[in-house]
Nucleic acid binder design. Structure first.
Lengths: 196, 196
DNA sequence: AGCGTTAATTGATTTACATCAAGGCGCTGA
DNA sequence: TCAGCGCCTTGATGTAAATCAATTAACGCT
């Protein structure tokens, strides 16, 4: 769908067809094939990214060279390194396509124009930030308190559709465990469910 | 200091003396003694909290009855359950005083008035949110990739002054480890440093 | 001063998960 | 068609941190 972003903003930020048309010049559309990078560690993240279709992931690499997945972004999600974007620092994460992906990229100018043309965009934007914070808090809570199995169950409950689109080792990485451990967790769950 | 919030806003949000005086009616000041609760799990968080002096902590309790500290808030910090505040849900966290603490509480009305009287408040507010997100991202990254020792070292590096004001078991809880483990981590570090 | 309570340490043991290593299974592509 | 490569699984072993338990240290309270 070429105009998913328009639809999304009409729905969530109550932006009219006309208002969107005025903003369109401030957008950039791009396509990425699986494996291609949207952002590389060390670069400064200069724009926000909205996924129109496909699937992206962001991840960091630790000193030992291990990847840690920070976020998945399927269609209708935003992704980007806010720290880098907002404070102009080099990014500590990579953003990479998992599926063939169409994105819309935009920067602060777009946001200002949008807020100017329709004040409800400001409300929408803050809601986005607040929601992001809530989601991050929830994840920290899980990492602090839940076992590997509980975290996996929570994942499939929350992102059910993604479990079929993402290779298992990436889910393991997101959960903070090894692929081997996730495999065993799944075996255990299968065994438990059989017994019913 | 009674008017720490005024100072803070003058410094960070460029709010003048006059502007602050107009906003003051929308503020509530409160004092909490050590152990007293600012917010209880299950309540809806109806205001933002700014710490003028003292120290608060927020924590959640898991199914097993264990506490997990989400945040410390010393003077000049904000704290609150944004999820609950913004989406009107019952809070999943408790906020409690560690030291005798003076706070300022305010709600959306205050923020709107502030943005109205000085637009730079909006910029400040967004910066606050962005910064919060960055901090949460960093913590997730640490929880995913670092050992107990690395997390402790990062903590004392980042919040050096707090390490002397917070009991050790609370630091352990913040780091996601047991007090016993933190005690051993510290013993190890002491041994290592001696050898130099 | 002496008591109770809570915090910190230390040791012994257990456990969840990581690591290392090997094998199978399904792609894809010359 | 089958060689090669990811991905997933399984088993054996290792290890960081949890748990359990006991001791000491520090703190308010009457």
């Amino acid at each position: 769908m070429a105009d998913q972003f328009k639809k999304y903003l009409a729905d969530k930020a109550m932006l009219s067809e006309d208002e969107f048309r005025e903003l369109e010049p401030f957008l950039t559309r791009k396509h990425f094939r699986p494996g291609e990078f949207v952002l590389l560690e060390g670069d400064v993240c200069k724009s926000h990214i909205f996924v129109e279709s496909g699937l992206l992931r962001s991840y960091s690499v630790d000193e030992a060279g291990k990847e840690h997945i920070l976020q998945f972004a399927p269609e209708n999600w935003f992704i980007g390194d806010r720290g880098s974007y907002y404070f102009g620092e080099p990014s500590q994460m990579n953003i990479q396509a998992i599926e063939p992906t169409d994105v819309v990229m935009f920067d602060q100018l777009f946001i200002e124009k949008a807020m100017c043309s329709n004040p409800s965009y400001g409300v929408f934007n803050e809601r986005l930030l607040q929601n992001h914070i809530r989601q991050l808090q929830g994840r920290i809570n899980l990492l602090l308190s839940a076992t590997a199995e509980q975290r996996y169950l929570h994942f499939i409950e929350t992102y059910f559709d993604l479990t079929f689109r993402i290779p298992q080792w990436m889910i393991a990485s997101y959960l903070g465990i090894t692929p081997e451990s996730l495999s065993r967790v799944r075996k255990d769950l299968a065994r438990k469910n059989q017994k019913v």
